[in-house]
């Protein structure tokens, strides 16, 4: 595995303020702490060349996990290994093998032209000229980097700046790139362009990508695998297809009928398969199951004048929303 996280924990300690003056003075000498588990027993492995999405609601522990993987934060316990490095211990040698984009931070120089920022990064990462030109060529060709190559970073639009940030993170041909909300605030066209570039590098150069995003489009278009984290714990690790199958309320047939819907519902409910049947607006929905194939369903509903029939699946966004909501309810019940 290129990335291996074993039983990662990160605990933040913050001092508890005293209630009275006496308590406040006493706490100066002997402080009391409250502990927050930001990440709890998270384990996963990512193979070389994978593109994995790390998702979860705000405050779930995604960014803390990314920071531990990039060597910025030390885990309170547990072990991380990326490309054979301990990110915290070997930080300076390790970061030469990774690229990082924090969507709300910049590694570019605000007052200097884009090309100067890139030259500084080239010097910092000791990138040979040939590699530098080769890595840039894709972003020049597909991203239109040349349009604003000589402009100071402060004059760029958000989309142009993010394109530069992503190009900068790939500049030293890293083995793995961590993208923390790389498409935040971008318009549809720029998002599509960005996703295309990331997908291409992941596919052609075999660069491993770990992306966190609240944008379902990023997850669907880029990743093959989902790591779902909530309340600091890893709740799901698997393919998108598997997540779609296992999360949400399943797959349905939806029929719009001209005849008596209640009678049709009663008829379907009486079917020996015992499938769930429900009204949803103008539609009558029945759970999709091989025990009630489509031809048989059409035959059953034929007397009720079928105007339309379609398969219904929840979107990934709805599935994730349901997942997060269940997590909140679970946490409230546990409290």
């Amino acid at each position: 595995m290129l990335i291996q996280a074993d039983a990662l924990n990160r605990v933040y300690r913050s001092p508890l303020p005293g209630q009275s003056w006496g308590e406040r003075f006493a706490r100066l000498v002997r402080p009391k702490w409250s502990e927050t588990h930001s990440v709890r027993d998270v384990s996963f492995g990512i193979a070389r060349g994978e593109c994995v999405a790390l998702v979860g609601p705000n405050g779930a522990g995604k960014s803390t996990t990314i920071k531990m993987l990039t060597g910025i934060l030390a885990p309170s316990s547990g072990r991380v290994s990326v490309a054979g490095f301990d990110p915290q211990r070997d930080r300076r040698a390790y970061v030469k093998h990774i690229g990082v984009v924090f969507g709300q931070r910049s590694q570019l120089w605000w007052d200097l032209p884009v090309q100067d920022s890139f030259r500084i990064l080239q010097a910092l990462f000791a990138v040979p000229e040939a590699t530098y030109q080769q890595q840039l060529s894709l972003f020049r060709r597909e991203g239109g980097l040349d349009e604003f190559w000589l402009r100071p970073v402060r004059t760029l639009s958000l989309g142009q700046r993010m394109l530069c940030e992503i190009a900068a993170s790939f500049l030293h041909a890293p083995e793995v790139v961590f993208l923390d909300e790389p498409t935040i605030g971008l318009d549809l066209e720029m998002k599509a362009r960005m996703r295309g570039l990331i997908r291409q590098i992941n596919r052609d150069a075999g660069t491993t990508v770990l992306i966190t995003s609240h944008d379902v489009g990023d997850i669907e278009k880029l990743s093959q695998r989902l790591l779902l984290i909530d309340h600091g714990q890893l709740k799901f690790d698997g393919s998108l297809a598997h997540f779609r199958q296992s999360a949400g309320d399943g797959h349905w047939w939806a029929a719009k009928l001209g005849g008596d819907r209640d009678a049709a519902q009663a008829l379907l409910a009486a079917h020996p398969a015992g499938l769930a049947v429900r009204h949803n607006g103008d539609w009558l929905e029945v759970a999709r199951d091989e025990r009630l194939p489509l031809p048989e369903l059409l035959q059953l509903l034929a007397p009720f004048a079928i105007h339309d029939i379609k398969p219904v699946e929840q979107s990934l966004e709805e599935l994730l929303h349901g997942f997060y909501l269940a997590g909140k309810v679970g946490a409230r019940e546990a409290a």
Partner: peptide, 13 residues
């Protein structure tokens, strides 16, 4: 501002 996070992902003291 947390900008230091970006600097710590660069190979320099």
């Amino acid at each position: 501002s947390g900008e230091v996070a970006s600097q710590l992902t660069q190979p320099m003291n």
